[in-house]
Amino acid sequence: MNGTPAIVNDVMSRRVVALREGAAFKDIVRTMQEWRVSALPVLDDDGRVVGVVSEADLLPKEEYSGAPGGRARGVPGADAVKADALTAAELMTSPAVTVVSGASLARAARIMAHRRIKRLPVVGPDGTLEGIVSRSDLLKVFLRDDTDIAGEVRREVVAGLFGTYADAVRVGVRDGVVTLTGRVPDTALTPLAVRLARAVPGVVDVHCSLTGPPRHPDLDPDLPDARRTAPA
């Protein structure tokens, strides 16, 4: 696809700051401030992602710092643990929500939407950290040039579905919106063409006006002649 982003590996950031399980509370806060991030992956001794520490994990210590009789007294269970935690291992949310580097951008977007998170650690087959992907990384695909999108739709969708009839299909793209027009031998393939075109990286939407072959009243006497003018 001429270098077009298609999988997480294509758009992820490879420069990643991470924590070890023994990282101290103040070091975690300092690292977040220095790197201007709201969450950090936590790694075990083998470099595998075992959890994530976010700002939300740190806040209970401040929230309950003035609670009478000690932070944890009268505090909900999970918050009590966070309020008294001193290290990344005690603070982190585990298991971590991650995505593999070979996953599609759509897969990463679904995970972020369903789990309501902004950044995902990217891991290899063995669970070791390879990078970080953010919401803004996933949106880079929509910067793709319209000409590139049109070319891929012609090659991968139109030519693949309609073969020798592909030249009869016109593909237009404007601001990521694909328009398909022309005649095709079998309109039953039209929904599939729309679905495949919509899956092309960078496509925002698909408008389809594909029609079937012209009717021949001489061969199909039961069909109306589209060329015949209406009676006065």
Rank of each mutant, 00 (worst) to 15 (best):
P191A: 10
W35D: 05
V178R: 00
V49D: 03
S101L: 15
R107G: 04
P5R: 01
M112A: 07
H114F: 05
W35P: 08
V141E: 06
G22T: 14
A6D: 12
L129A: 07
S13D: 14
E63P: 00
V49M: 13
A24T: 01
I149F: 10
R36V: 11
R155S: 11
R73N: 13
A72C: 07
R15Y: 03
G51M: 01
V75R: 09
M112Y: 11
R71N: 04
L91I: 04
P76A: 01
P221S: 03
D79P: 05
L40T: 00
Y165E: 09
S38C: 11
R135G: 09
S13T: 12
G102S: 12
H207D: 11
V173E: 02
T147S: 12
G102I: 01
V169A: 02
G182P: 01
D46T: 15
V52G: 02
L196Y: 12
D222I: 03
R195E: 08
L120I: 06
P191W: 03
D137L: 09
A232I: 07
T31W: 01
V16A: 13
V50Q: 04
V37R: 00
L210P: 00
P60I: 06
A96C: 12
L86M: 05
L58R: 14
A109P: 10
D205I: 10
D44Q: 07
V157I: 02
P217D: 05
H207N: 15
V204H: 04
A199W: 13
A6R: 15
R154G: 03
G212S: 13
A232C: 07
Q33S: 14
G66V: 03
G176T: 13
S13I: 01
A39F: 00
G124L: 01
V184Y: 08
R154F: 03
A24L: 13
S65I: 11
